[in-house]
């Protein structure tokens, strides 16, 4: 049996814990490792939005690839002093999704022309509220435990503070404090990514 002290000098794997500003500056300056870091931080969100909007895994993967390829090729149009990188990436994501939906719509029109099928499935525009929800989900997932678990129980499962306190064996005051501070933190994060909780 292994004693507890065999385990564990722990350190985070994230290289040097670069700040978001450092990553954005490195990206704009064309450092490939900054692109890798940007991908690590934001690909789940980009992929999640694409999957939600397109409902198809292959399409979502294609769009995710396209977003990071076009972000890298268009990095000179990103100005880290005036905009946030995630907001810029989300904007690119919406464009690539719109492109994909437009292509589907063209395919449907072609089908309709060929087969007399009614053209009743128009591409839906990306829903900003859904994007905001996914940004929030992404930011909740970045919280450290127990805050991540607590906010997940509050929002996903609509549990009361008392239920959460009992379930996690934490004092009620601790739970409340995590929810309040978590909400403030999430507000700050959403301001950066979307310009506000209701979208920019």
């Amino acid at each position: 049996m292994v004693s507890a002290d065999r385990v564990l000098r722990v350190r985070p794997v994230e290289p040097g814990d670069l700040s978001a500003a450092e990553v954005a500056a490195g990206f704009a300056a064309g450092h490939e490792e900054a692109l890798a870091e940007v991908y690590r931080r934001w690909s789940a969100l980009v992929h999640g939005i694409a999957l939600k909007m397109l409902g198809d895994r292959a399409d979502a993967e294609d769009v995710t690839q396209q977003v990071f390829v076009s972000a890298w090729r268009g990095r000179s149009t990103f100005d880290p002093t005036t905009g946030s990188l995630p907001a810029w990436l989300v904007g690119i994501t919406k464009h690539r999704i719109a492109d994909r939906l437009a292509a589907r719509s063209r395919d449907q029109r072609t089908l309709a022309a060929v087969g007399g099928i009614r053209e009743d499935m128009r591409a839906a525009p990306t829903d900003d509220r859904v994007v905001d929800r996914l940004v929030l989900a992404d930011e909740i997932s970045r919280l450290d435990d127990p805050r991540r678990t607590i906010l997940g129980l509050v929002f996903y499962e609509d549990q009361t503070y008392a239920q959460i306190a009992e379930r996690l064996n934490l004092p009620l005051g601790t739970v409340k404090s995590h929810v309040r501070r978590g909400l403030l933190h999430l507000r700050d994060r959403l301001r950066e990514v979307t310009g506000g909780p209701s979208g920019s």
């Binding site: 991908y39 980009v46 999640g48 999957l51 979502a60 929800r133 989900a137 996903y156």
Partner: peptide, 25 residues
């Protein structure tokens, strides 16, 4: 923001892109 949070559904939990997407990039 709290209202938005309460709209979260289990399928809003994000699905990571499979590793080959990075390889393709």
């Amino acid at each position: 923001l709290a209202d938005l949070g309460h709209e979260l559904r289990p399928d809003d939990r994000l699905d990571p892109a499979p590793p080959q997407v990075w390889d393709r990039v």
